[in-house]
Amino acid sequence: MDDSLLVWNRTVVTEFILLGLTDDAVLRVILFMVILCIYLVTISGNLSTIILIRVSSQLHHPMYFFLSHLAFADMVFSSTVTPNMLVNFLVERHTISYLGCDIQLSSTAFFGAVECFLLAAMAYDRFVAICNPLLYSTKISTKVCVQLLVVAYVGSFLNASSFTLSFFLLFFCGPNKVNHFFCDFAPLIELSCGDVSALTVVSTFSAGSIIVFTMIVIAVSYIYILITILKMHTTDSSQKAISTCTSHLTAVTLFYGTIMFIYVMPKSFFSTDQNKVVSVFYMVVIPMLNPLIYSLRNSEIKGALKRKLGRKMFSY
């Protein structure tokens, strides 16, 4: 057979079928209602966080600058998969186009990496604030914040580009049923024809290097923070330092705990269904929890929110 004809026959797939979370009709209705509520809370919570930080002058600090971008990333990250998943609950056969699948894959790769970089930048911010408070204004200046943000978005763009390139280099010649609720790279690899080892290495190296690098930054920052807290002579100072890190540590633990389970642990340790459940937590639930974690555990955000609500009530 002519080689050009063989290549043509291997690229006949123009759309994919997302199998979703379950085939049970009753469970799908229940999940639709639950996830719809979660998504509405995610959008309203993160949008409120962004607006509050923008309008409250007392929150115009580097920590909240990064938090506002984290809220934006959470909101878009969830939006790349949740609306599609909700539609999947309502129809028997949910399809997504070839191009749509790539957009979903690259979007999740981009905003997932943005979250990693932002959590690392926030850890560095806490490190400087606690360990070098006298140099805080120079080490975490507006220029430095913008530079860190540019690094986050450029690094995330490169990560997404590696997944996009790998996707377009895959050949799909047979089944087009993706055993997931979104176009994740792992189930797409299972559907591809031919040798995909090189493409797997490229995408794994890209995502893995970002995860490892940001985890190292976070770990080193908190090691120095812990050492500094242990050296503090007063209980009030140590408690104040710990309180400023609690919300961020909670967010880091939830986020990296789930991605380690999904992308680092051997596949033999968990089933595909378990992977889907953890992915729901990682991509749908955590974006909802982050604004709640920061608003409930952060006294400055709670104070700013009370002041804004108080002024609004007084105006009436």
Rank of each mutant, 00 (worst) to 15 (best):
L5N: 06
W8S: 11
T14V: 04
F16G: 00
I17D: 02
L21F: 13
V26W: 10
L40W: 11
S48P: 00
I50C: 14
L59G: 13
H60R: 13
Y64M: 08
D74W: 05
V76M: 04
M85H: 01
I96R: 00
Y98K: 07
G100P: 03
S107G: 13
G112F: 11
C131V: 09
Y136F: 14
T138E: 14
K139G: 05
L148R: 13
Y153P: 08
V154D: 04
V154Y: 04
S156R: 09
N179E: 12
H180W: 01
L188D: 05
S192I: 04
D195T: 04
T200P: 00
T204G: 12
I210P: 06
I210K: 07
S221N: 12
T228P: 07
K231P: 02
M232G: 04
K240W: 00
S247Y: 07
Y256G: 05
I259W: 06
M265Y: 11
K267E: 14
T272D: 00
Q274S: 09
V277Y: 15
F281C: 12
F281N: 04
M283L: 07
M283A: 11
V284Y: 04
M288T: 15
G303P: 07
L309Y: 03
L309G: 15
M313Q: 06
S315V: 08
Y316H: 10
